[in-house]
Design a protein around this nucleic acid. Sequence first.
DNA 1: GCGCACACCGCCCTCTGCTGGTTCAAT
DNA 2: AATTGAACCAGCAGAGGGCGGTGTGCGC
Length: 299
Amino acid sequence: MYTSSRISSFNRHMKIHTAEKPHMCHLCLKAFRTVTLLRNHVNTHTGTRPYKCGDCDMAFVTSGELVRHRRYKHTHEKPFKCSMCKYASVEASKLKRHIRSHTGERPFQCLLCSYASKDTYKLKRHMRTHSGEKPYECHVCHARFTQSGTMKIHILQKHSENVPKYQCPHCDTIIARKSDLRVHLSNLHTYKAMEMKCHYCSSVFHERYALIQHQKTHKNEKRFKCEHCSYACKQERHMTVHIRTHTGEKPFTCLSCNKCFRQKQLLNVHFKKYHDTNFIPTVYECPKCGKGFSRWAPY
DNA sequence: GCGCACACCGCCCTCTGCTGGTTCAAT
DNA sequence: AATTGAACCAGCAGAGGGCGGTGTGCGC
């Protein structure tokens, strides 16, 4: 309900409830309620911006726009202060919007899902997830995106030189995105209460990166050492075979001639060579004299 | 009644950061 | 060959900056 102490203000207000628009633009025939609105409109045709900023090249149609611009860009005066945090804004509407981040109020409800936003723009942006609209197109590869920021990152990462990289402060890893570095730090360099055991020894770690680095030290380690000689190897199955050279054990017997072998592979080679009638031995020919050999032993 | 100053609404933009699917190299 | 896990990548939402436009209070 509008009330006013002045009849002139009341009459002006009442005009907004009528379709009466007596002031017409002579350039586009659009009509306006007041002379001021018409003048501002005509200025958009003529490019007239009477209110010029003294500190930059910007100019505005109304004085209010100039004042606000100067606050944003030059004086940084922010009269609207949040009572719950340090936030302050140039405009009251911005403070109102900010307050919603404290209260959690979400007045703008999506009609197609449960999402609700704190301002109209976010709801409008959200609606693209339902419509499938992708208004932003990469000028290089023509890929399309729902948000301009996503496209900007795409162009930067895919089509630009001198792409910014993020160096992990704890290791040599360089990562393309700041948010991915955060994931890297969380996964590899964050203390975990649960103990992580080394696959090869009894060591335990609380940080995944330390565990991985430690396990690399085992990589070329010959962990299996012979009790009877200096032989050492990486795999247990190799040691099992080696031990037979000390015990004399030869568990693989040829069924055709009863000859015994320490390794199954040696038995297989023996059988093919001496008992398999279809066996055709590979002959390696010398490229210089043409002489044939049964094994390849380059020069 | 006019015009200035200010309040207010709305629109669009950027920056930021999280998330989950994909890719690819190491095991 | 299958599995694993770290980096890559696009999608999406939160927060805030900046400006266009309109309505209102009030001095002249």
